[in-house]
Amino acid sequence: MNNPLPPKVAVVGGTRGIGAAITSTFVTAGADVLLTGRSVPEHVLEALRGAGRRAGQTVEGLALDVTERDFAQRLAESARTSLGGLDVLCLNAGVFPNKPLADMTHADVREVFATNVESQILAVAACVPLLRESGRGRIVLTSSITGPLTGFPGWSHYGASKAAQLGFMRTAALELAPYGITVNAVAPGNVLTEGLQELGEAYLAQMAATVPLGRLARPQEIADVVEFLAGERASFITGQVVTVDGGQTLPESPEAVLPTGTDAPS
């Protein structure tokens, strides 16, 4: 059974990693897409347009810095002018600089919260009129297990921002429910993105060893969940978080993660 997508989608931070996979998934499904990021290379847009399956499909780019004061208004205005409206808003922008608490500064905290929390609140607020006009609005936030479910040294500001993001999501879901707009989040574990790869092979191996399924997630596996939440079959789901972590948050100790290929206990 297909999961029909509304025809117009805005994706923020979609040029790399999870955002890129979400964008590609929507385009392949035939959606019109406004792809945003600090920069949107033309070759990326051309590749996406080549993946489209519908005649006359719109795939446009909009360079945005989500920490700038007017970005949310520009996003909403561009969605109206480029796509003619908005059905699905997927917000993926996020930064995770490593900084121990002893070295934390006001600027460090401000950078993370401005990108990970404030930008999402402002983008949703600016796009509410368009989503109301749609009559079937969907908002999907990319969160994380770090903060809401787990912690990691050096990422206290990141974890706090992701927990705050979900607090916003739940209240937004209540406020927007009367208009038929759903607000949900996906909480990935460790995903094999460019940003994570920059942390080095030793870190990747360490993280994979903590996942019961024995590997890190692929960006497409997160995009598949986002596609479901943005589709018609998720029309009665709102204010919820879907954890996609390969079981990473299940073990109560490292010893509970069996080596890959181990036979189940008899």
Rank of each mutant, 00 (worst) to 15 (best):
K99Y: 02
A55Y: 12
A55H: 12
G13W: 01
E60A: 13
H106S: 05
S39Q: 12
D32S: 11
A79G: 03
V33L: 04
G17I: 13
S143H: 08
Q73S: 14
L174N: 13
N2D: 14
P129W: 15
Q197L: 08
A187K: 02
V12D: 04
F26M: 02
D70C: 05
E255K: 03
L199I: 04
T15N: 11
N184E: 06
G94P: 07
T25G: 08
P153G: 06
Q197S: 01
I139S: 01
N3T: 15
A234W: 04
Q248N: 11
A76S: 11
D87A: 10
R233K: 15
A173S: 14
M104N: 01
S39G: 11
M1A: 13
G135Y: 12
S144F: 05
C90E: 03
A63Y: 09
E227M: 04
K99S: 07
D263W: 11
P97C: 09
A79L: 04
L192A: 10
S161H: 09
L101A: 15
L258V: 05
L174A: 14
S78Q: 03
S144N: 06
S253D: 14
P148F: 06
N98K: 10
G94D: 10
L75D: 04
A202Y: 00
L174I: 11
A63D: 13
P6Q: 15
V44F: 07
A208E: 00
A256Q: 14
P251D: 02
L62R: 03
L64I: 13
V186D: 00
S156W: 02
G37M: 09
A185D: 09
T210E: 01
R170Y: 10
D70V: 12
D103F: 12
S235I: 14
T81G: 06
A55M: 09
D32A: 08
A76V: 00
T243M: 03
G85P: 03
G147M: 12
G14N: 02
I139V: 13
M169D: 01
Y158K: 06
E194A: 06
G30L: 02
E111I: 00
S39F: 02
P153H: 03
T28W: 11
C90F: 03
F228S: 00
A160H: 07
R138I: 06
Q165L: 15
G261P: 06
A123S: 13
F152A: 07
A114N: 12
T115E: 05
